[in-house]
Structures are given as C-alpha cells and as structure tokens.
C-alpha cells in the first residue's frame, strides 16, 4: 500500500518536473545520532521534514542562523549523506544509490573555504581536471587539457598560473578555482554553500558577478546558502528561511524582504545592518530574547516558541504547518 502511494507521487512529480523544476526535495530528513553519555545517544534532527523545489535557471536562497541545518540540506540533497527520510528528484528522476554517481555529474557544490577545499599538493590544473577524470569525461588527455584551460580562462585565471599550487593564490582567486572545478563537468545545478562568506567585499562582488554571469550563460540553477541576507537578497529569486532544522518561511525575494510574516523572519531580516546611515537611523529593530535552543532539545510544537513574542498555548501543542498565504508565500506559524 505504502509502496503504491510512493509510486504514484513519484510519477506525478516526474510529470511536473519535466516541465519546470530542476530539483524537487520532498520531506527531507537528516538525523544524526549524537552521543550524550557512554550508553545514551539522542537524535539530532539537523534537517526535519524539509520540502522545496528549484526551477530551471532559478536561484533559491537559503538563510538562517548557524546550526539551523543549511549545509546539511545541501549535503543531504546531493546524497553526500544518505537521507534519513524523504526524496530528492533531479530533473524528474528520483535520486538513489543506483543513479547518484551518474547524477552527481549534473550537481556540484562550491564551499565556503577555498583554503581547505582545495588540496594543497595539487596544481590548479590538477584540481580542475580531477572531476573530469572521475566522471571519465573528455576522452583524450588533450581534450581534457583544453577543457581545463577553457574553464580557467572563464574564471579569469591565466594559463601561466595553471601550473602553480593553490596556496600561491589569494582567497578570491582560490574561490575562482573552486568554481572552475565545479563547472568543468558542465553541471546544471550548483549548491553554493557560503561561497563568498570568507571574502572581502570588493572580492566578494567579483565572485557574485561571476555566479550571475555564468548562470545567464549556462542557464544554471543555484541553491544559494549564506548567512548574509543582503548577499542572498541580491542573488536569489526566492528565499527560504530555516530555524532549527525546519523550513519556516519561503517567498519571492522582495516579498519576503518587504513583508516577512513569520516572527523569526521578521526579527532576522530586521537585524541585518543596512549599509546606509539614513535607512539605518529610520529603521526599527525587532530584538529577540535569548539564544537558539540546543538542536538536541528542540521545543515541542513550534520550534521558535521559546523566543517568540506572539506565542500562545497552541504553539507548544502542535507544529504549525507551512501554508500558502497567497502567491506562493509559505509560512509556518499559528498566529501570523
């Protein structure tokens, strides 16, 4: 019975995604077992029942405070972890063990730290070539070298620099190398996980521009994860907000900026320091009390209720579902 149900939803998803979505995530859960003593352990619900879809050529921004599960969503949907539950469809095809190696060709990840994600003993050329070798693309050695040169020039690294080691480059250049590597195998979807967070603003702007230009050129789709809301706002078509492993709001970028509905989103967006003194003086901040609770002891019902100014009895009894408030503006809150 259960099997049947799954099959029907899978087919429905296939039909729909063929037209529109490059990625569909349904009820994704990623629990980690965390030891709390010699014999005891607790499940850490890093991602708890998260669903969203990303259209072709679209950028979905993912924001929320550290530890809320952003990176785990990225890794789990790429099947770098085996999800505890839920399904991920890439281009209408359900990802599982049998097809993940093949599908991974189309899905790449660019990380925050260009320092640690690049092997210091490899030359830049080796670094960009590696995924071509792994996926056995571009048959001959010569073709592969050409592809590497093409990718490096695309991101503004000269051919003379190709034989140098990653540690000889600045942070911004290393991030370019990371991007060249991700793009080498011609992916269609990229998870950018805090890809510009370690960079100074003048260099950050160079990389953000590059992401935008590459997207236009190759019709890429991005899941753009960052804690910097101004950067995410600039980059994204829609923004999703997470709190303690759950998706609590998702809407078009300017809609969520101008009209945040969930009390947490309201506080989060109002806390962003705006680099314009007049705007800063005129804006009012919503201050939250206290800290995020431990992810091992997520409050019952609405996870935000311990810090929420609008909390009522209902909030501790049941988890508010994510409901559409019109125009695809999804909110999970009982009282807003």
């Amino acid at each position: 019975m259960n099997e049947m149900n799954n099959m029907t939803t899978a087919t429905a998803a296939t039909d729909q995604t063929k037209t529109d979505n490059i990625l569909e995530v349904k009820g994704l859960k990623q629990y980690f077992k965390v030891k709390t003593g010699f014999f005891s352990s607790l499940p850490l619900k890093a991602v708890d029942d998260v669903s969203f879809e990303i259209k072709r050529g679209e950028t979905l921004g993912l924001v929320g405070e550290s530890g809320c599960g952003k990176t785990t969503v990225g890794r789990s949907l790429m099947h770098l972890y085996t999800p505890t539950a839920g399904e991920v469809y890439f281009d209408g095809q359900k990802i599982d063990k049998s097809n993940i190696t093949e599908l991974r060709r189309n899905m790449q990840m660019v990380f925050q730290d260009p320092y640690s994600s690049l092997n210091p003993r490899m030359t830049v050329e080796d670094i960009v070539r590696e995924p071509l070798d792994v996926h056995k693309l571009y048959g001959s050695k010569k073709e592969r070298s050409e592809r590497v040169a093409e990718m490096l020039s695309l991101v503004g690294i000269s051919s003379e620099q190709a034989s140098r080691y990653a540690h000889e480059f600045s942070g911004g250049q290393r991030q370019r190398i990371g991007i060249a590597r991700a793009l080498a195998i011609d992916p269609r979807f990229i998870v950018c996980d805090e890809s510009v967070s370690a960079l100074d603003v003048s260099i950050q702007a160079q990389i953000l521009n590059m992401f935008k230009e590459l997207q236009a050129k190759f019709h890429l789709s991005y899941l753009f994860i960052a804690h910097d809301i101004l950067v995410v706002t600039y980059m994204s078509d829609r923004i999703a907000v997470m709190y303690l492993g759950k998706l609590i709001e998702m809407a078009d970028t300017m809609e969520i900026n101008n009209n945040p509905v969930h009390p947490y989103t309201q506080a989060l967006f109002s806390a962003v320091p705006i680099p314009d003194p007049r705007t800063a003086r005129a804006s009012k901040r919503i201050m939250l009390e206290g800290d995020v609770p431990s992810p091992l002891r997520v409050p019952s019902g609405c996870a935000f209720r311990t810090r929420c100014p609008y909390v009522t009895a209902q909030c501790s009894e049941a988890t508010p579902p994510l409901t559409d408030r019109g125009n695809g503006h999804l909110v999970a809150c009982w009282n807003k």
Binding site: Q204, A205, L208, L230, V231, T233, Y234, S236, M254, P275
Partner: peptide
Amino acid sequence: LLASIPKREKSEELLTPIAGT
C-alpha cells in the same frame, strides 16, 4: 567599497567590484 556591496534589492544588474587584489 560602497559600490561593491549588495543593496537590499534583488537586481539583475551586476555589482561594481574593485578590480585586482
């Protein structure tokens, strides 16, 4: 520096980075 930071808007326009390192 001021031109290179994203403003609070979704924009198709590119940012104006400072060239070089």
